[in-house]
Design a protein around this nucleic acid. Structure first.
Lengths: 251, 251
DNA sequence: ACCTCCATTTCGGGA
DNA sequence: TCCCGAAGTGGAGGT
């Protein structure tokens, strides 16, 4: 709790502060002009520019430009972060193995450095995921097919995991693939992969793709493979509305 | 260039500074204890905790916990960011349409706030991508199949784009799907989708999945669909080695 | 705007 | 550890 900030720190102060903050398990930001080098699964180089660098106690390193959702360079959790001097400038190195890769940030001009002993244990509560949709179907099988029953969840097969499994009114096996957003051809592929295998031993099995919507192309592809589509609105997952939800709703 | 920092700003100063910095197009970080509410494609709530909030002039909002590569809450570029007061605390709101969604960050205790007029136009140079692997195959077709020739790149078909296309020693068409990492069942699906269509007019066409490795399940699935697998090491993309690459290599 | 597919995808769960 | 599939995926490129 609480932050400590250095403005325009010297090279020595930057390195010493980074080393100490990493050792202490602080969360750190650095505002600097820098160059970035990455070597691992791919190889990258980013020329000089002004960025925000974020270091976390779990070994995460993020380099953010002034635009874009994703960091321009990064190293995921589990990396080892060190600071030293090269060619008279501070260098932050984040390295990990499995895969063996390394990011190095060359601080050409360090404007500001902040350390922060952050404490955060609150869990993120998230509703409206695909799992929520699975549960909705388990609770309301008729929303997918009249007479659907004997429901099973996350059934493992040699060709992947079936989202929801059951039998229909006539006792035929039903394999259901659930998507929380617009269905695509890859989703048809996925269901088809299960069904090709499943129908070898259950020729009359039905395969149903459940999603809020599907293009005509997806629907055609399903028909060609003798598969079905059921539109189940995403709001079936009980999520709120942007316009009406307020902070108080969570209290 | 240069940063301005406020320590423990008042509620009024926080809101005024945020509004001014957003208007000015600054990149902003806030260290604070906060709660976060999200409503849009899904619905989320994150209880009190100490986090780093990053705001960018393109409308990006990121809320980072002290652990994890990904932000715990975010709003992608294009969002409209505003600051106001609710229940006596500063609130940052980032909203966008298409999809209509909103993130609100309730600052319960603002430790520090920094604004940064960052200038960064350097392009990221990245090698070792899948495109690089395509080019390697075009230059070294024998690495995939002896006698492979008449190579074409990114060949459009009515059912998707084929990574690499050619003919083999016997003149049979060859469709190649390239993956820069371990092949998975979804990659088999993708190649199979092209091949099902392609073989309707070219029954003797070969389909090859090229990747650094593939599980036995993937290999079995390929065999069953009369498709082939060729292991092509990722280092074939000419990328460097972690142990030997230095900053000087880029100069 | 929709669709497709890559990504240094990351992340979580299960075997 | 590997493998598989979801993600509020984001981002790019084409139509």
């Amino acid at each position: 709790m609480g932050t400590t900030t250095w403005e325009d720190p010297t090279v020595e102060a930057t390195v010493a502060t980074l080393e100490e903050a990493v050792r202490a398990g602080d969360t750190i930001t650095v505002f600097a002009e820098c160059e970035v080098e990455y070597d691992g699964r791919a190889t990258g180089y980013l020329g000089p520019g002004e960025r925000v660098i974020l270091l976390k106690p779990d070994g995460t390193l993020l380099v953010h430009r002034p635009a874009g959702n994703d960091p321009v360079n990064w190293q995921p959790p589990g990396s080892t972060v060190t600071a030293d001097v090269a060619d008279g400038d501070p260098v932050i190195t984040a390295r990990r193995s499995a895969p063996d890769e390394r990011v190095r940030v060359f601080l050409r001009d360090t404007y500001q450095l902040t350390t922060f002993a952050a404490d955060d244990t609150a869990p993120l509560e998230l509703d409206g995921t695909e799992t929520d949709m699975h549960e909705y179907i388990l609770d309301h099988p008729a929303a997918v097919d009249d007479g659907l029953r004997a429901i099973e969840h996350e059934r493992d097969t040699p060709y992947g995991t079936i989202d929801v499994y059951g039998t229909d009114e006539e006792g035929r096996p039903v394999v259901i693939e659930v998507k929380r957003r617009q269905a695509s051809l890859t989703h048809v592929d996925q269901l088809n992969r299960y069904m090709e295998q499943f129908r070898e031993s259950n020729p009359d099995a039905r395969g149903i793709l459940v999603a809020p919507a599907a293009s005509s192309r997806v629907r055609r592809s399903l028909r060609e493979k003798d598969l079905e589509f059921v539109a189940l609105d995403e709001f079936a997952t009980n999520r709120g509305e942007v316009a009406s939800t307020t902070f108080e709703d969570f209290q």
